[in-house]
Nucleic acid binder design. Sequence first.
RNA 1: GGAGAGAUGGCCGAGUGGUCUAAGGCGCACGCCUGGAGAGCGUGUUACCGCCUAAAGCGGUACGAGGGUUCGAAUCCCUCUCUCUCCGCCA
Length: 424
Amino acid sequence: MLTLNQIRGNSDFVINRLKVKNFNASKIVLQIIDLDKKRRQIQADTNSLENDLNSFSKNIGLLFRQGKTDEANKLKENTIVLKKKIKELNQQLNDSNSLLDNLVVQLPNLPHESVPKGKSPEENIKIREGGTFPELKGKALPHWELAAKYKLIDFELGNKITGSGFPLYIGKGAKLQRALINFFIDENQSAGYEEVSPPLVVNEDSGFGTGQLPDKEGQMYHIALDNLYLIPTAEVPVTNIFRNMILEEKDFPVKKTAYTPCFRREAGSYGKDVRGLNRLHQFDKVEIVQIQHPEVSYNTLEEMVLQVESLLQKLNLPYRIMHLCGGDMSFASALTFDFEVYSAAQKKWLEVSSVSNFESFQANRLKLRFRDKNSKKLVLAHTLNGSALALPRLVAALLENNQTDEGIRIPEVLHDYTGFNQIS
RNA sequence: GGAGAGAUGGCCGAGUGGUCUAAGGCGCACGCCUGGAGAGCGUGUUACCGCCUAAAGCGGUACGAGGGUUCGAAUCCCUCUCUCUCCGCCA
């Protein structure tokens, strides 16, 4: 959520920046500025009346203690009108405040100045690519056929147990999941991220803190009886560790990594794009999160991009890094880099990671601040996160790209984790 | 699931209707003292909103959350949330 300070006095700037995200903010911004002015006037009036009431009360107490009951009772009469007026004004103030909140919450985060204009993923800009493309003999099988052939994943059984989008991993398929998770966490740990293992369900406040609520509730599984939500990503519980916190500058950088299953309702399209592991309701992901000083958060973003890149390099997968255009960015992000791996059989790029700087957008909702060393004032911190990495599509590419006549080769870095170097 | 107790500032903890922003202690910051450190002494130490160009200053709000009673609520009443203890059940 943007701060009122960001909007007040910068309305043109805000409106123009949001155009990059194809968001027409002019109407809302004007409403906000108007309402904010009104709200402040109401508050000034209310405060002054409350001040009057307080001094009346003090005097009444004083008179009672002096035994001047008649005078006190006379003063009491004065407070009746005052109280009624204050009550009305307070009602107005509350109304204005919640109206204002409702408006501000609708504004997406401002995109960073480097964000390219564009409406769709086609307009994302490739930063660089790496890894080597596989040279496959004969016809490459898609991962869902490989998964069936080698009995790694049973989509039908997942269907039977739960429904579509909930695969059952079996044998070496299951072991491969664990191997990847452990590999990623170990790598992130060596890069200075502390491992945490958070709750997989969160309350409403947490959902709001990272921006899933309100608006995007349809994307999360909701447990109505307890009003809790299944996490769509570890970002939610991990970032919410810092809700309502005041950090010191010496605490920076805060670096956490977490493995969690992720649950997404998202009723996507059907057909080829969602076959096999391409889109699931439940999947595994290792996340990295950083809390940083605003002055250096973009260096941190770069550092996180390199961390994710190193994972893909070690797995020896062909990948590319995309600078997302305004239209393809998430609501809360100021700058996002997507990582895609090439799937040899499907002949397309699959997104396996998204690394973003949210600047103070989440911090404002979370009330995550730090004390500035020089000014001694409280300042909103910057939050960043990225997948390092999400498993399903990575596994898809891994299976497809490494298939041979003898079986599927496992990347060397995983051998210690899997205990086998080939699936056959 | 049953019974009971509780929630006060960064932490501990006092406070059962008025001068309570809230005693006392710890911690922290600064100063004095010291060769240096410690002890000791002194001073300071919540956040949010509003007024003010800003600072200073002033006003308002907040004692788990929300509502109520009252001229006045940390204190009384109602609802909710959470924590702890005991019993039961249990991975």
